[in-house]
Write a protein that binds this DNA or RNA. Structure first.
Lengths: 141, 141
DNA sequence: TAAAATCCAATCGAATTACTCGGAATTAAA
DNA sequence: TTTAATTCCGAGTAATTCGATTGGATTTTA
């Protein structure tokens, strides 16, 4: 039940971009330095996030990356889905349908479904904005 | 965020034992057949579960495995912890303390903590008895 | 004593993960 | 116009994990 480093690094990088939202492009290099992540590895993650439309890039000198939308509109779940696929503890609950012909197996499937829903509930309830707020101690919760 | 087959197989095997609780030892072979799991692989899982005290074994002919306690006292979370370690999405939230000296990283840590708590909440709220009840359609929920 | 079981330790192949490398392309600034 | 900064892209690789197998050894019942 561990998250991959893709997700963990990705969330940190996105938080970094969120904290500088509206201030122009941020370089890969500076994100990597600030978060202590390998540049070349982080680059791959940013490419995925860009292809998915969560961030945009500008090439050349003074280039870099920035969010395509407001931090309050980007959920942690969005980032994780892009970087490591569907949020589900098992293959059989990725979609609603299943080819679960064995009744016994289906009993366990009910559990995995609950787990999935719980996971999505949490991850889709937290936005990058929430993270920024918490960082500044503005969050009561 | 996928569960390993250890956990999935393990829960199914434990469910199998729960459904026959109080009826004497069940053989590895019959569990494996019923659940469509490789015998030799399942054996490893049962050894772990036995060492952890969730099941007990009797050797020799007519031997097999059985639960050490009532199905209502065995939670899915217990099984998963034994078969794949602490229920936590990241290393940094396995224990309460952390060596998180970077404030930025700690913001993400808050999220992983919420995820962990949510996961544990679900997995520790479901017992083997619940699974048996659901299988018989006795559960309203 | 034979058959039915669990026990145990080692091994192994495949897949996945985390990460690196070497340029090519683009852009801004000197 | 050149240079430096930067993203883009595809290939490669080392390490780890995962799922599973193998080959006995031991125990117990019939």
């Amino acid at each position: 039940m561990k998250l991959s480093t893709r997700s963990r690094y990705g969330v940190r990088a996105m938080y970094e971009l969120a904290s500088k939202y509206g201030k122009g492009p941020i370089t890969l290099k500076s994100i990597a330095e600030k978060q202590g992540i390998s540049e070349s590895y982080l680059e791959q993650l940013l490419v995925s996030l860009r292809n998915a439309g969560l961030i945009k890039s500008s090439r050349g000198a003074q280039g870099g990356y920035q969010l395509t939308k407001d931090p309050k509109d980007i959920r942690i779940g969005d980032i994780i889905r892009i970087l490591e696929g569907p949020i589900a503890p098992t293959e059989c609950v990725i979609t609603e349908e299943t080819d679960c012909r064995n009744a016994d197996k289906c009993v366990t499937r009910l559990i995995w479904k609950e787990v999935k829903e719980s996971l999505e509930g949490v991850l889709d309830s937290i936005t990058l904005q929430d993270m920024c707020d918490k960082a500044k101690g503005k969050m009561i919760n």
